[in-house]
Design a protein around this nucleic acid. Structure first.
Lengths: 329, 329
DNA sequence: TTGAAAGCGCTAACAG
DNA sequence: CTGTTAGCGCTTTCAA
């Protein structure tokens, strides 16, 4: 409670001030082991008199616990680290880690060399890893020594718990909504091909279209607004009778809408457009974007928590995708 | 390069494998001090043969360097930690800190008790602090022991370097643009009152309006889209001749536009709307948002770097605000 | 219930 | 140029 000394107080300082040994002070502070009420009292008093804060690095060193949780993002280039989605994950993870005095680090995992995880595994200061944009290769390349302290936001495996949105169900819900609105010529702009978890919605789309006897119109995407613009042009050119576009990214959906309107196509009058994620601005635009909302923050928090707590986790934790019907579709 | 052992390799392991002492291995690995080419060679070989990664926690312990950089965000409630802007700062900081094996932590600083910084100062594992939403009270409450390893994104002081957008110039540029477009009844939706750096644009606004003999119409805001909606209503009610709204947040600007259009007001036909920050989506909406772009990522990176490098920094580093004229104004 | 002692993985004098 | 020695701040047996 006192103004911080120039040098942070150590446990030794506290022990001396309380007139006990370092071990006793440690037991009291860490709340582990025995200590007489009297000792407890004096140590506590000394600690807050000195403004004592345990040094997590030292603690981690002796317990072998690590001090950093690494958010490892796979992608074609380091630019993936600039993605707002990634920032959201890092932000949520950082919040979850703060009470444990664990810091968060951000790493890029080049798609071409999945064994870059080895370095993280060999770093004793890394307490765990949260995988983002997980691929099969990546899953295979997770070193054994990382087992039990890795979680994946995306696909998982027998040994690596997965935390993800129920993509299939989400896609189905949006597509049924489009269908219920009378749309029959529905194109889809997908996520990147290398990203396994973005294949689910595509499968669902194909299944539903086939089932309804509707044409399958798939355009590869990359989650960007720019791709939305070009994809809209392509779609219009290839399929002039188009009456809906389903994009697996709100950013892309906005790109689609912009291009469509610039081309004189009314949204949703002529073509309905739906997105994916419900970013904060989705409800503020004109037309407001119909999309599916996903608890990205909660997913990231759950993954980070699983890694931190190191307790047995269900192999797959699915979070619900909720249709948010607005004006665009 | 070998598959990671169950226990991360230690310097001791490397030294033994290379047939040298721990100190020699340390010198080679850390690149500090002398070592014969021969020793250098063998240590390097042993290190990568064992997949050795130095343990930054241990290193930090002996050098007193710390392992975490804390992004400390002031605000009325912990909800500020959910802000996309904050996530962007954390993401950028994490990227800058990664090479140094420093983790990033996210802390909320209650507006009402600025001395919560004391705890960070007393934590030996904290290598530095980046302040966000800095207030005068906060600046005054920064413990001496933190000097030289704090940076502020926002206002600074004699001892705390500031990294910020040139808000005044940015506001002036946008307002002049509005004026050049023929707008004469310009209302402004500000940032929160408790946030000092958001007062600069207000001052600039008042100065320019006064200078041009135009009415001053200020509405307090809070950076949210929701507030934009209500503010638009208020503005229209109080000032029916309104022909422009300048909001100090793109989110707010979008809220303003939405409310205006719902009320049958054309944008930019009847009322021009301009924002602040140039969020990624600003260019994708209809109408595309006129705003000022700010290098948030670079600002955060600069602040984090200043803290990490601990080298003398200019008291104030201003980043340019660049007008992005689009359709809305 | 407490203290003495050892050691986590690393760096940094200090002698050789 | 290299090895020995002494810690950094903390937890944790092990005796007392």
């Amino acid at each position: 409670m006192t103004a911080a000394a120039h040098r942070p107080a150590t446990l030794e300082d506290v022990a001396r001030a309380a007139g006990v040994s370092r071990s006793t002070a440690s037991r009291v502070i860490a709340g582990t082991g025995f200590a007489s009420p009297a000792a407890r009292e004096r140590v506590a008093a000394a600690a807050d008199q000195l403004g004592y804060v345990p040094n997590p690095a030292a603690r981690a060193l002796v317990r072998g616990g690590g001090v950093r949780l690494v958010v490892a993002v796979a992608g074609p280039s380091a630019a993936v680290l600039d993605d707002p989605y990634v920032h959201r994950v890092v932000g949520s993870a950082a919040r979850v880690c703060a009470p444990a005095a664990i810091g968060v680090a951000l790493h890029w995992l080049p798609l071409s060399q999945p064994n870059s995880l080895d370095q993280l595994a060999g770093d004793g200061s890394v307490c765990g890893v949260v995988l983002v944009n997980t691929t099969e290769d990546l899953l295979d390349a997770v070193p054994r020594s990382l087992r039990g302290r890795v979680a994946s936001i995306g696909i998982g495996s027998a040994t690596i718990p997965s935390f993800d949105v129920d993509n299939g169900a989400g896609a189905e819900e949006v597509l049924r909504h489009l269908y219920a609105g009378g749309r029959r010529r529905i194109a889809m702009v997908t996520g990147p091909r290398w990203l396994p978890c973005s294949q689910r919605p595509v499968q669902e789309y194909r299944r539903l279209m086939r089932q309804a006897g509707l044409p399958e119109r798939v355009l590869p995407g990359d989650f960007t607004a720019a791709r939305g613009r070009t994809a809209a042009g392509e779609a219009l050119r290839r399929w002039p009778d188009l009456d809906a576009v389903y994009a697996i990214s709100d950013e892309t959906a906005f790109g689609v809408i912009a291009a469509l309107r610039e081309g004189g196509v009314r949204v949703p009058g002529d073509v309905a457009v739906a997105g994916f994620d419900d970013i904060p601005l989705a409800g503020m635009t004109t037309p407001a974007l119909t999309t599916a909302s996903h608890p990205v923050g909660r997913i990231a928090a759950a993954a980070a928590t699983a890694v931190l707590d190191r307790r047995p986790t269900a192999p797959v934790t699915l979070f619900p995708s909720a249709l948010v019907a607005r004006a665009s579709a």
